[in-house]
Write a protein that binds this DNA or RNA. Structure first.
Lengths: 105, 105
DNA sequence: AAAAAATGCACCAAAATGGTTGCATTTCAT
DNA sequence: ATGAAATGCAACCATTTTGGTGCATTTTTT
């Protein structure tokens, strides 16, 4: 289940903050996005790797630094997954409603 | 960030499978939802607790057993969070586009 | 009343996570 | 050419997570 990995990547306050920063500001370096998180650069780097493994972000070396950028497709995938869950839920509720109406006319 | 906890709860294949079962079938007991997952009931029970802590599901004792049911509001919250991320992303892209058009008329 | 079912609780072990420090390497700027 | 900046890598540590076993307890069922 690829969705689980994306959810997992988003399931941490620091990583979620990183993603939020990327949606607001543009792409930036690892050092830049690691500032003001209360952890070291090396610590932040591990979080970035988790996000990259789930393809929530992309890391591309550019000379001396590495550019961090958002991969919006992953967010779409996650949202679609939830939407589908809700659709199934609604289908079930509808079936239940029809059943009750049929049994108690 | 409450969203992080919800994402975290969804970020595991077994827990995601449990949620999916709940959207399809109706509420059921702990034993029922723990079957066919490849782990013991006690193991499954811990996953259920994670989901309950994040309010993705509700656990209500009912005589001898405990009924497991989905709390759809949590899914909505998670979806809304992603939707908002995407909105910010789009706002930024639009701003960038307008900027480029202005600079290179 | 006795057996069976559903669950809780406590404890245990292995693995993963989150975070650190220290140091080496590459690349850019002066 | 030298120094500063950005990064990578490895080792290490504490904590949490994942999963298990064993046993006690409470309800149903027969």
């Amino acid at each position: 289940m690829a969705a689980a990995e994306i959810f997992r990547a988003l399931g941490d306050p620091i990583r979620l903050e990183m993603v939020q920063r990327l949606t607001r500001g543009s792409r930036c370096t690892i050092t830049a996005i690691s500032e003001g998180l209360g952890i070291t650069r090396q610590g932040a780097r591990k979080h970035l790797q988790v996000l990259a493994d789930a393809r929530v972000i992309a890391l591309q070396p550019e000379g001396r630094d590495v550019l961090v950028s958002l991969e919006p497709e992953s967010l779409d995938q996650a949202k679609l997954f939830i939407t589908e869950l809700e659709r199934q839920w609604d289908v079930r509720l509808d079936a239940l409603r029809r059943f009750v109406e049929q049994e108690h006319p």
